[in-house]
Computed example of a mutant assay.
Amino acid sequence: MSSDNMSPVNPLPPVVTALFLVIIGIEAVLQLGARGILGGADAVGWRLEAVQRYAFSGEIFDWMVANGRWPAEHVIRLLSYALIHVSFTQALFAGVMVLALGKMVGEVFSQLAVLAVFVLSAVTGALAYGLLVDSRVPLIGAFPGAYGLIGAFTYLLWLRLGQLGETQTRAFSLIGFLMGIQLVFGLLFGSQPDWVADIGGFVSGFTLSVFVIPGGWRRMRDRLRHR
């Protein structure tokens, strides 16, 4: 293909587009059901039913840990919660974050790596919520997975700043800004414990990036040999 036919804008990685479409698609179905356009009268309660069946519950998680039993219909909650949202606004905001950050991370990572970061960060966020938070409020929303992509982006920026000989702590400006906003909103409107899941997702995304970035395993092996 000649350079004349090349687009000046890199296309979205298909896996990122797919994640966005799944998030918005599920929300669209719930919205149509709530308005009686889809599914008839029973569809009005689809969102509540989805929360009851697929949201991550700290109480259910504690029960599984205490009894050593891990039913599939409850284990799936570690990930399925990330596809359910409180409202269209929340789903759209989370979807846009996934699009923007997934595009930037996907320009360096493979599609499988981008998906792994999102999925494992969502799972880690749920585990952090279940282990560190004592709350009956269920966890829903794609934000822990999106924060995992923020962690991956932060790692890429951290590497770039190191190559340029600049202060690498600047790479954490974005997560610091977002946490600052959450703190302000918490002080003004009351704090929600789901920020613990967001931080868990961020740490997971940053850590995973060390290994899934192209050449990551080789780089880690060389460091261990030098030690």
Results as ranks from 00 to 15, higher is better:
217 W>D: 10
8 P>Q: 07
72 A>G: 11
56 F>C: 03
217 W>Q: 08
57 S>D: 02
54 Y>I: 13
85 H>Q: 07
56 F>V: 06
165 G>V: 05
62 D>P: 00
173 S>F: 11
150 I>D: 00
144 P>M: 13
96 V>Q: 00
185 F>I: 09
2 S>P: 01
223 R>T: 12
145 G>A: 11
66 A>W: 04
122 A>D: 09
176 G>S: 11
166 E>D: 02
209 S>P: 06
131 L>A: 14
40 G>C: 13
81 Y>W: 14
98 V>D: 05
89 T>F: 04
105 V>C: 07
141 G>K: 09
138 P>G: 06
204 S>Q: 04
209 S>T: 15
176 G>K: 03
76 I>S: 09
157 L>R: 15
153 F>Q: 13
150 I>F: 13
213 I>M: 14
83 L>W: 12
216 G>K: 13
32 L>V: 10
153 F>R: 08
75 V>S: 07
21 L>N: 04
118 F>D: 06
170 R>C: 08
222 D>F: 01
46 W>R: 00
68 G>S: 14
97 M>D: 01
125 G>T: 13
102 G>A: 11
158 W>R: 03
136 R>G: 12
90 Q>I: 07
156 L>H: 09
43 A>F: 05
4 D>A: 13
201 G>L: 06
111 Q>V: 05
72 A>H: 08
89 T>W: 10
108 V>E: 12
192 Q>T: 15
86 V>I: 15
176 G>F: 08
150 I>R: 01
8 P>I: 11
98 V>W: 04
68 G>V: 14
193 P>S: 07
67 N>K: 12
192 Q>L: 12
225 R>T: 06
121 S>R: 04
205 G>V: 03
125 G>H: 08
136 R>W: 06
140 I>R: 02
14 P>C: 09
111 Q>Y: 01
174 L>P: 02
153 F>V: 10
154 T>F: 05
9 V>S: 04
106 G>T: 10
130 G>V: 14
132 L>M: 15
23 I>A: 08
181 I>G: 02
99 L>V: 12
19 L>C: 02
12 L>C: 00
100 A>K: 04
226 H>A: 05
190 G>R: 07
15 V>A: 02
70 W>R: 14
59 E>D: 00
149 L>E: 09
119 V>I: 15
